[in-house]
Amino acid sequence: MCLAIPAQITEILENNMAKARVGESDTYLTSSTMLLPEPPTVGQYVIVHAGFCLHTLSEEEAQESLKMFRDIAAVLETENQGCTVKPL
């Protein structure tokens, strides 16, 4: 029951509610936006738990994290090829 899932806002509804699509599926959730510090906009990703949006996902942070993961891979790959790169 801890489960929370990311979903993309597709429609803003009345009474602090929003419709959001889960992944690329045909599943849509109608969730309250009452707990979000700022009202979401269509296209944003939110974390949904028990019918409530808890957080608006940060695209910038997501891209930075991905870059970091890929940088780790690149550095270790270079090292494995015998180059002298400072270990992380």
């Binding site: 993309q8 690329e24 296209g43 996902l57 695209e59 997501a62 991905l66 890929r70 891979a73 270790l76």
Partner: peptide, 23 residues
Amino acid sequence: MTARSNPLAAFSDPHLCAPLLQR
């Protein structure tokens, strides 16, 4: 973020794991 580019899906790429295991 748009429906066309979902950056969240990229986090499940298994190729990210091997370097982390080494680290």
